[in-house]
Structures are given as structure tokens and as C-alpha cells.
Design a protein around this nucleic acid. Structure first.
Lengths: 263, 263
DNA sequence: CGTAGTGTTGAATTGAATCAAGTGTCGTGG
DNA sequence: CCACGACACTTGATTCAATTCAACACTACG
């Protein structure tokens, strides 16, 4: 049995749905990294920067966006202390951001999925505070920041949208603050899974069944737990019948009970 | 003996220096809450929003800023779920932001000192995610956000400045994330004191001797510790000769050793 | 002067970390 | 296509840092 149900979810979940659809061109559909796909035809547009821009505004944004070559698993988008030039929108795949402390240990500061914006850790000090690594084969749109600033001067909607995106990042970080300062291991992991679930749903993927592209160690570093504790809590939630866990494949069997764990 | 050295630091530290000086008007000097003090004459201007604006730009900013009545200790500036209208700059005093969870427990999400910007927790969802309470008699400048957005359209420097401020907030929140996910109680408290110390220095106050305006419980809620642990760590650091602690008065005796604790 | 809020300290408890051993999985190159 | 090695993961036993529970002291304020 290769997975929870005896058929291969990995392939079906991962590949198909995240492709940026490009109208009726079937070739583009199968190639989510196609650099020709514009914001206006990108199926992630309503999760991403262009939201609340009109057609004309979107095409102006389109012009400053660079669609780079895709990154392989393990490749870095940027590293700690790199000069800040751009923010990035995830087109497909996923990323982790992390910092290395003095004795070389890493701590994961975030995970990023399609439609989410990356790189705002560099805006304050004009230097990236995190490193960002692809967790799987992934592609991104690069938005040079000085050009984004210039365009925001001309498009009030874009300025407003970017203030909102940064505001949401602040809100999200403060939620993690309270999570880490008062939740138990089980509550942290439940909350983490619910966050992933909601974000998969945003991408039109199943909120009940998905793949983790990060390791138990990554999750532990993010949640302030050891990888052993993460593993034990997964086992515990499975024993209670709330989850089914098979390696990186997660099925949330009792969504309500899981939600009740974090109130 | 009323404090560490037998004289009253509380009064001298707290009152005098934080006043927004107003050139050569001695009356304004003694009244930090004077609503007439403009950005251009405010001694906090170079910590605050106006930095990198020229005289003309500052006076445009000045026009949209409302200087409200001061808040007494324990009063709220805004509460969780209040509609978002403005961000605020702390003029004098200090504030804590906090959230209440389902069972009525509070968790502190931040402390704010003169020159720092407050209220960005509302930008994303147009609704405040935190409550904010004055920790002492305090005053603020209110900056209506829609007007700030409008003015940012006209003043590229202001837009850029506000992007930076929000970027720094994100960076700060991520630093707390790594603090909470991997530091011991002692490391957390050391890091907290060093942060306060640096921020007092920014306000032209002593980085070695200052007053805590928050309770041990507030600090614990912020750092993810119980108030008993906070108290024990203070005692421990005092026993090691790194600090002198007398109620809310802190003296950092060995700054180097304290810094070494967090590497 | 009394009381509520704040802070300290001790003893017992506990949740998660650490240490350790072993299994499972995946990608690579022969 | 299989074997190998490197990672990734699980589970158990033990330890430990911080919490919890409890008693008491201090301070500040009406």
C-alpha cells in the first residue's frame, strides 16, 4: 500500500492543480513555470499582489515582474545578509525561510505556498534577515522593489494592497508569537496543520488531504519543538483518530476535533 | 533606601528627558503632552515617521497628525476588534499590546516606547488584532491611515519610510519568533533587557539604569514564561552580579556578560 | 491603616528535551 | 534494476527546565 488509501495521492495532489492556467492553451496548463504566463492570466492572481487592481493596472505591474527560472528542491532563492532588491510571489511549489544562529543551528521562520509573498524580511534593513530555500521544485515571480515603490506612487490601489500584505504579515507573525508563548506541543501542531489546511484550500487543493513538503525537523524548528516531539504528537493525533499520517501524507479525519484542540 | 543608589531615579529618569523639546520655549519643555508641539520641533522626530522627510514634507505630515489627550496608566488606546482607523506614534510614556485568548487569559504581544509606531496590527484586516494599554501616564500622536496613504501618494519619501517601518516590524516579530522557539528563560530575559536598554539609549536615556513600567507578569506573558520564572531569573542574574534589581528599577552592571548570554 | 496588587522563594510536578537504538525511504550510481 | 548510503522518522528511557501550587513579604494607594 503506497499511501493512506492505497492509491497515489502524491502525484495527483502535487502536480495538477497548482499550474497557472493560461486560458485555453493546453501546453501552458501542464507547465506551471512557463515564464510567459502573465498576471492577468495567472490563476493565483486573486491570492497575490494583483488583487484589487484593474486590468490596466495589472498590465503595468506585469511589466516590472521578472519570471525567473524555476528552483530545484534545496536551492536558495536568497540568503541571510544578501542585499535586498526584490520581493517574490510563489507561483508553484513551496519554500521555507530560516536563520542560522551563532552556533550554526537553524531556526525556521516561515513556510510559503503559491500566491504568498516572500522577501519582506529585507525591506526594513535593505538586507535579507533570512535565507529562503525551495522545499520542492518551485517557481517564483520576482518583483524588483524600487520599481514596485515607483509604481505604487502611480497606483493607489497597489500601494494600498502592499500595505495590506505587509500588515497581514505582521498579524501572522504576532499570532505565531502567542502560539509559541502559550501553546502546548499538541496545540502548536494542531494550529500548524490547520494553517496549512486553510492555505491548501486557498489554492483549490483539498484541505483534508495534503502532502508535507517539509521535514519533521523543519516543523519542529518552526514551532519551537524537537523533531522527536513533532513525531510523537503526529503519532498521538493518529492514535486518537484525528489524523491519518503516512510519512509526508496527512489526512485530517476529524477536522472539528482538530479545531477544538486550539479552541 | 528608596532605590539602588539611595536616591530617586524613578522621577528623574521618567519625567525629564522624554519631553518633546520645542526649541527655546521652556514651558513646552516641561510638558511632553503639549498638543501644540509639531513634528518639526519634536525631539523624537528622528526615531519616528518624519525621518528622511524634508521640512516641507514634514509640515504636510504635521497637518494630518492629531495630538490627542494623554492617557492615564491602565487606559486603553484601542481594543481588540476595534475598527482600524489610525496608526499612532508614542510621544511619551509606554504601552503594552496584548490579546485575550478564548479562556480570558492575556498574552502580551509587544511593548512600545517613545518614537515607536503602534497600531500596525490593524492594517491587514482593517480591524485591530490587539488591545493596547498605557503602562504609565502617556501621550501619542494619531495618524489617520487613509490620510497617511493619501499623503504617501504625494511624498515618495513618506511611502518609502512607512514601508521601512512596517518592514522593521516584520523583522522584529521574526526575531521574537526565533527567541521563543529556541532560547532558555535566562536567554529570553537577557535579550529582553538588552532590547529595552537599546531603546532607552535611542531616547537619550541611560542604557544601564532604567525603570520597568510593566509587571513581571507582563514580561512573562511576552516572553512565554510564568511570572515566577521571570522573578527567579532576575534573582539569578542579580546573584551572578550581572544585574542589580530593586523592584522595577534595573541596573545592568555587566553589560558585556549580559550580551554574552545571548551570543 | 488596611487591602489589593505585585513580587519572591520553596517544594513538588510535569511536559518536552535529550540520549539512544532501530526502522523506513529515497535517490544515486554501479 | 538493485544495492548502498544518507537522510528521515519512530519509539523508548531518562533527564531537566520551567510550571504549578503554595506561603509569605513588600509596596503603594485610597
Amino acid at each position: 500500500m503506497s499511501n493512506l488509501n492505497g492509491n497515489n495521492v502524491s502525484a495527483s495532489i502535487a502536480a495538477e492543480k497548482l499550474a497557472s492556467s493560461s486560458g485555453n492553451n493546453p501546453l501552458l496548463r501542464t507547465c506551471p513555470q512557463n515564464p510567459a504566463v502573465s498576471c492577468s492570466s495567472c490563476r493565483l492572481a486573486d491570492l497575490c499582489l494583483p488583487i484589487s487592481l484593474n486590468q490596466n493596472e495589472i498590465s503595468q505591474l506585469d511589466e516590472i515582474i521578472e519570471r525567473n527560472r524555476p528552483l530545484k528542491k534545496g536551492e536558495h532563492l536568497y540568503r541571510q545578509r544578501d542585499p535586498f532588491r526584490s520581493v517574490f510571489a510563489v507561483r508553484s511549489g513551496s519554500f521555507k525561510s530560516y536563520v542560522l544562529n551563532a552556533d550554526g543551528q537553524s531556526r525556521v521562520t516561515g513556510f510559503y505556498m503559491p500566491g504568498e509573498i516572500l522577501g519582506m524580511d529585507g525591506i526594513g534593513k535593505r538586507e535579507h534577515m533570512n535565507s529562503v530555500m525551495a522545499l520542492e521544485h518551485s517557481s517564483i515571480c520576482e518583483i524588483p522593489f524600487t520599481q514596485l515603490e515607483k509604481l505604487s506612487q502611480q497606483l493607489p490601489n497597489l500601494q494600498s494592497r502592499f500595505f495590506s500584505i505587509m500588515g497581514n504579515e505582521i498579524t501572522k507573525d504576532q499570532e505565531i508569537h502567542t502560539l509559541l508563548s502559550s501553546y502546548s506541543a499538541e496545540e502548536r501542531l494542531a494550529s500548524f496543520l490547520l494553517s496549512l489546511s486553510a492555505r491548501y484550500a486557498r489554492c483549490q487543493l483539498s484541505p483534508e488531504r495534503f502532502l508535507l513538503h517539509m521535514t519533521r525537523g523543519d516543523i519542529g524548528e518552526y514551532l519551537g519543538l524537537t523533531l522527536e516531539t513533532v513525531s510523537r504528537v503526529f503519532s498521538g493525533l493518529q492514535k486518537k483518530g484525528i489524523l491519518r499520517v503516512k510519512n509526508r501524507e496527512i489526512e485530517i479525519v476529524e477536522m472539528g476535533t482538530l479545531k477544538a484542540l486550539v479552541q
